Amino acid sequence: MHTMWKGTISFGLVNIPVKMHAATENKDVKLRNLHKECETPVTYERVCPNCDRDVKNDEIVKAYEYAKNKFVVLDDEELENLKKEQKDKAVEIMDFVELDEIDPIYFEKSYYLSPDESGVKSYGLLRSALKDTGKIGVAKMMIRSKEQLAVIRIYENTLVVETIHYPDEVRDVQDVPNVPEADNADAKELDTAKMLVDQLSATFDPEKYNDEYRAALLELIEQKKNDEDVTTATEKPKPDNVTNLMDALQKSLDRAQDDNQTTSKAGKKATTPKKKIAKAK
């Protein structure tokens, strides 16, 4: 499993060197955009609308737009210094709380934690402490250039980091339109709804839920492949050295011929004898 972050988790005087691995993966079927006419993949290039030309990576700087078309430019050194300041800090558990005190709307992404060779014992110590107390740890950590609020909990005998949103990243529920203040259902309707809930109640089993759309899409793709209903993108021919050499020779030849013709015309003009004017007797 790929290690995407290495650091130290600490609580009190206990330090645990750990490695972090992505616990989930996106299995969306990614589709490419093709040009309908020739079925070639469409490319997206970085173009400066002001200079009207392509922009190379080394010509790009990062900036924050604080007002319409007004920016604060940040150079790479400034950003790297900020990253280093946070990266060098150990991930310290600030509080221990109950899991059900955090609403699921705050949860973002999950990562597995594995102990470094020297941290096996302290890893087990934290796992046992969390298991016996039923608590989870709240911490801050730097992941991919962003300071994340996170919780550390147990999932099937493995410590898991769960990144969570900061309060100001969760939109105000009062801004949701058309939410009724009170329920207008009568008693009979409510009783029927409750009966339906009871009939559909079950123990949560994640294995029973599948992405049916993804499965159908993959089946359709496989069927088209088997039926040879496929296309091959036409690649733009790249000029080889021979072609370049022939082009250069031909252009040189044409230019030489043009120069010779120009020189020849100029020479004839210069050597044309002047007509003699007869002297009057």
Rank of each mutant, 00 (worst) to 15 (best):
H2M: 12
M4H: 06
K6W: 05
K6T: 14
K6V: 11
G7F: 04
T8R: 09
T8K: 09
S10A: 14
G12F: 07
L13G: 02
V18E: 02
K19G: 03
M20R: 04
A22T: 13
T24L: 04
N26K: 07
N26W: 04
L31M: 14
L31G: 00
R32K: 10
H35N: 14
H35Q: 09
K36L: 11
C38W: 08
P49Q: 04
C51V: 06
D58I: 05
D58T: 05
I60M: 08
V61I: 13
V73K: 09
D76M: 06
E78I: 07
L82G: 07
D88R: 11
A90N: 15
M94L: 14
D95C: 05
V97N: 03
D100G: 01
D100C: 05
I102C: 00
D103Y: 05
D103F: 02
P104Q: 02
Y111P: 01
E117C: 00
G124I: 05
G124L: 10
L126Q: 00
L126Y: 00
S128L: 07
S128N: 13
L130D: 04
K131H: 09
M141P: 01
M141D: 04
M142P: 04
S145T: 12
E147G: 01
Q148H: 12
L149G: 01
V151S: 00
V151A: 04
I152H: 01
I152E: 03
I154Q: 05
I154D: 07
N157F: 08
T158G: 01
V160S: 01
E162D: 10
P167A: 03
P167E: 09
P167G: 01
V170D: 06
D172H: 06
V173D: 11
Q174C: 00
D175S: 11
N178W: 09
N178D: 15
V179L: 12
A182L: 09
A182Y: 15
D186H: 04
A187F: 13
E189Q: 12
D191E: 15
T192M: 11
S201A: 14
T203L: 06
F204R: 07
D205S: 01
K208E: 10
E212W: 02
E212A: 06
R214A: 13
A215V: 13
A215F: 06
A216R: 14
L217T: 08
L217C: 02
Q223M: 10
Q223G: 10
K224R: 13
K225D: 03
N226Y: 00
E228V: 03
E228G: 02
T231S: 10
T232W: 03
E235S: 02
P239W: 09
P239I: 10
D240V: 07
V242W: 12
D247C: 04
K251I: 03
K251T: 11
L253V: 14
R255D: 15
Q257A: 07
D259H: 09
T262L: 10
T262D: 12
S264Y: 14
K279D: 12
A280V: 15
K281D: 12
